[in-house]
């Protein structure tokens, strides 16, 4: 009985100091906001914005071809080289073509899968499918790329599968890159479309059918407009991720190069960081352009 008051007062004092901080913060919403956002804003500014700006600045510097040292004098040589030399144009078109193809293939595959998951599958099978789609993301990117290298090889499983039909594996090359990238980025395309479809309520589909629309018209007039933001979000994933890839190309691409490979070889073998930075600006500019176009259509407002 005699000890009890002491114990109580100790816990009370601990409580009251926490209480003091709480009530201090309660009356100062701006301080609260600052504490909440301090870490993410620091990260965003220091690591993200500063790195991007550094990239932009580096593109205007040059390298002494004899000593390999970076000269911090302003020049447009790198950008001029990137814009005028045929090599960079060819690789840019190839990279954009691959990214577009991967995006289209992923959308074509993802839409029916997402539709099945969101509108047809029962709760249990829906959960299983989400897990199945997420599972490849837990495996290393390299493992998946090498798995496709083995699948695509001339004595691989694909060759064995299609040989009876008089076909053969595409082997290593552009087709291999497209197939592998489409496989690797597919989960990033399915999931946004799935969540987008889940937000299209079933009664809207019923209402459309009730008013006389057959499935095709319901999809065109109701589902597609409501799903467009999700489709765009999904396409941003597959397009930008393909745009920046260089590892898959090395593993299944044969002799082909994408923009990422040019950046990589300039950072490494050629030791020309400014030129690498100038090349890296191409995908940045492309994505910026894509997002601007998308924003103009108003699709992002419904996100």
């Amino acid at each position: 009985m005699t000890r009890k008051p002491g114990v109580q007062s100790k816990s009370e004092s601990g409580l009251s100091s926490a209480r003091l901080v709480s009530s201090y913060l309660f009356s100062r919403p701006k301080t609260r906001l600052a504490l909440l956002l301090a870490a993410p804003v620091t990260w965003l500014v220091l690591i993200y914005v500063v790195a991007l700006v550094a990239l932009l600045i580096t593109a205007f510097w040059s390298v002494d071809s004899f000593t390999g040292e970076i000269h911090m004098t302003w020049s447009l040589d790198n950008l001029q080289q990137v814009f005028t030399q045929a090599l960079y144009r060819t690789v840019t078109f190839r990279t954009v073509g691959i990214a577009l193809l991967v995006t289209v293939i992923d959308l074509v595959v993802a839409l029916p899968i997402a539709f099945f998951m969101a509108k047809i599958a029962k709760a249990r099978s829906q959960r299983i499918m989400v897990i199945l789609i997420l599972m490849p993301l837990w495996a290393s990117y390299l493992v998946k790329a090498y798995a496709w290298r083995s699948v695509l090889s001339h004595d691989g499983i694909l060759q064995w599968l299609v040989q009876p039909f008089g076909l053969s594996t595409p082997g290593y090359g552009l087709a291999g890159i497209v197939i592998t990238q489409a496989y690797i980025w597919l989960p990033y395309v399915i999931l946004p479309i799935f969540t987008g479809l889940e937000r299209v309520s079933n009664t809207l589909l019923e209402a459309s059918s009730d008013l006389g629309a057959k499935s095709g018209k319901t999809i065109r007039l109701v589902v597609a407009p409501l799903l467009l933001p999700a489709i765009i979000a999904a396409s941003i994933f597959s397009f930008s991720l393909t745009l920046g890839d260089y590892i898959t190309v090395n593993i299944v691409g044969g002799p082909n190069q994408m923009l990422g490979n040019l950046v990589y070889s300039n950072v490494g073998a050629a030791n020309n960081l400014p030129l690498a930075a100038a090349i890296a600006l191409i995908p940045v500019a492309l994505m910026f352009g894509y997002l601007t176009v998308v924003r103009k259509t108003g699709a992002l407002e419904n996100l």
Binding site: L204, E206, A207, S208, D210, L211, K214, L221
Partner: peptide, 27 residues
């Protein structure tokens, strides 16, 4: 037959007159 739904089920991306005209549009 046509239904008036409990949650109304109006198409959120269409304005009022487009919603009302929908049945005639698909016809």
């Amino acid at each position: 037959v046509n239904t008036v739904f409990q949650d109304y089920a109006l198409f959120p991306h269409m304005n009022v007159i487009e919603n009302v005209a929908y049945g005639l549009r698909v016809r």
